[in-house]
Amino acid sequence: MTASPTELKLVAPDRLRIVWTDGQVREYSVRELREQCPCASCRERRMAPPPPPTTLTVLSPAETQPLRIAAMTPSGRYAYSIDFSDGHDTGIYTLELLRELGSEASS
C-alpha cells in the first residue's frame, strides 16, 4: 500500500510541506513542482532540444510574478492536481511522484 498525505501545508509562499501516513515529512519548492509537472505539454517541453542561445522567451504577465500554488485538490485517491499562479493547471501529480520529488524534512 502506498503512503498517503495526512497534512499539506504551505510553510512559506514558495514551499509546500507534506506529512505522509508512514511519518515521512517532505518539503517541495513550488518552482520544483512546476518544473516537474507531469502533463504532456510539460513533458514534451522538457524532452525538446534547447532553443538557440539567441532566442528570447516572451513571458505572460502571470509568468513575471513570483510562482505560487493557487490551489491543490485531490484527484481520486492516487494524485493531486496543482493550480499554479502562472495559470498552469493541467498536471496530475501522483502520490508516487510526490514521494520522489522534494526532500525529507524534519517534522
Results as ranks from 00 to 15, higher is better:
residue 17 R to W: 00
residue 91 G to P: 02
residue 2 T to S: 14
residue 59 L to A: 06
residue 26 R to E: 05
residue 66 P to N: 08
residue 107 S to Q: 09
residue 51 P to R: 13
residue 17 R to C: 05
residue 15 R to N: 03
residue 4 S to T: 12
residue 68 R to I: 02
residue 39 C to D: 08
residue 45 R to N: 04
residue 72 M to L: 15
residue 41 S to V: 12
residue 84 F to R: 01
residue 53 P to L: 13
residue 102 G to Y: 07
residue 35 E to N: 12
residue 8 L to Q: 09
residue 82 I to W: 03
residue 103 S to D: 09
residue 103 S to V: 12
residue 106 S to V: 07
residue 5 P to G: 01
residue 23 G to F: 04
residue 12 A to S: 15
residue 7 E to P: 00
residue 8 L to I: 14
residue 34 R to S: 07
residue 20 W to M: 10
residue 74 P to K: 10
residue 30 V to M: 08
residue 18 I to L: 07
residue 14 D to C: 00
residue 68 R to H: 12
residue 57 T to K: 14
residue 16 L to A: 11
residue 39 C to N: 02
residue 16 L to H: 11
residue 98 L to A: 00
residue 43 R to H: 08
residue 49 P to G: 06
residue 48 A to H: 08
residue 30 V to P: 03
residue 13 P to Y: 11
residue 22 D to Q: 01
residue 106 S to R: 10
residue 8 L to D: 02
residue 77 R to G: 13
residue 82 I to R: 03
residue 34 R to Y: 03
residue 3 A to H: 06
residue 75 S to Q: 09
residue 56 L to T: 14
residue 71 A to Y: 01
residue 35 E to L: 11
residue 35 E to C: 01
residue 66 P to V: 09
residue 102 G to Q: 05
residue 40 A to M: 04
residue 46 R to V: 01
residue 59 L to G: 01
residue 34 R to P: 03
residue 16 L to D: 02
residue 7 E to H: 07
residue 21 T to E: 14
residue 90 T to Q: 15
residue 67 L to T: 02
residue 32 E to A: 09
residue 21 T to K: 11
residue 10 L to S: 10
residue 64 T to W: 01
residue 97 L to M: 12
residue 68 R to T: 06
residue 23 G to S: 13
residue 65 Q to S: 05
residue 3 A to D: 08
residue 96 E to K: 14
residue 95 L to V: 04
residue 17 R to Q: 15
residue 87 G to P: 05
residue 44 E to T: 06
residue 11 V to F: 05
residue 16 L to S: 10
residue 94 T to V: 06
residue 101 L to S: 02
residue 107 S to R: 15
residue 97 L to K: 12
residue 64 T to A: 11
residue 56 L to H: 11
residue 61 P to Q: 04
residue 4 S to H: 10
residue 69 I to V: 14
residue 52 P to R: 13
residue 103 S to P: 00
residue 75 S to H: 09
residue 75 S to L: 14
residue 65 Q to N: 08
residue 72 M to P: 08
residue 65 Q to F: 01
residue 72 M to T: 06
residue 14 D to Q: 12
residue 77 R to N: 15
residue 8 L to E: 04
residue 52 P to G: 13
residue 23 G to K: 13
residue 65 Q to E: 15
residue 32 E to H: 08
residue 98 L to R: 00
residue 14 D to R: 10
residue 52 P to M: 02
residue 11 V to L: 14
residue 83 D to F: 03
residue 60 S to N: 09
residue 101 L to N: 03
residue 3 A to S: 15
residue 12 A to M: 11
residue 95 L to I: 08
